[in-house]
Computed example of a mutant assay.
Amino acid sequence: MAELSDGVAIRTITFSLLSSPGLFFTFLTIHYIYRSYLFPYLQPSMSPAHIGVAIFALSFQITNGIAIGGWLGSYGPTTSSNWAKHDLSVYLGTAIWALGLGLNVWHDDILRSIRRRRGVVEKGSGEKVYEIPTGGLFEYVFFPHYFTEWVEWAGWWIVGGVACPPARIFLVNEIATMLPRALQGKRWYVSRFGEKKCEGKKAVVPGLI
Rank of each mutant, 00 (worst) to 15 (best):
L171I: 11
V162A: 13
G155N: 01
R187Y: 12
R11L: 04
A2M: 08
G22C: 02
G135I: 01
A98F: 02
V121W: 06
G160I: 02
K197Q: 15
I132P: 04
K128W: 08
V90N: 01
Y34M: 03
V53P: 05
G124A: 14
R192H: 15
I10V: 13
G200F: 10
I175H: 07
L99S: 06
S36W: 07
H107L: 00
R11K: 12
G136H: 01
Y91K: 10
A84M: 03
E3M: 06
G200E: 15
V151P: 00
F24Y: 07
G119T: 11
E3P: 01
M178L: 15
F170Q: 06
I30N: 01
R168F: 09
D109L: 00
E195K: 15
V205K: 11
K186P: 09
I169T: 08
G70L: 12
L88R: 14
L28K: 02
K202L: 14
R168K: 10
F170E: 05
Y140A: 03
A95T: 07
I175K: 07
F27Y: 05
G70W: 08
E139K: 06
K85L: 10
F138N: 03
Q61I: 11
R117E: 14
R187I: 13
I55N: 06
I51P: 10
I55P: 04
E127L: 14
Y91F: 09
V105F: 00
L103R: 00
V129A: 08
L42W: 06
W188H: 11
R11E: 06
R115W: 11
I33V: 13
F24M: 05
W188G: 14
W188V: 12
G160M: 01
A167T: 04
Q61T: 15
G200K: 15
W106N: 01
A182N: 11
G65T: 08
I30L: 03
Y34R: 00
R115D: 14
K186M: 12
W157M: 05
A9F: 05
N64H: 12
Q184S: 10
V129G: 04
T148N: 06
Y130L: 08
P77M: 11
P44N: 07
Q184W: 08
E174P: 04
A67D: 11
H86P: 00
G124W: 07
L28R: 02
P133E: 09
R35G: 04
L92E: 05
G185F: 08
R192E: 15
E139C: 05
S80R: 00
I68E: 05
Q184L: 14
V53C: 10
R11H: 08
I51G: 10
V162E: 07
T14Q: 04
Q61Y: 15
W97V: 05
G160R: 01
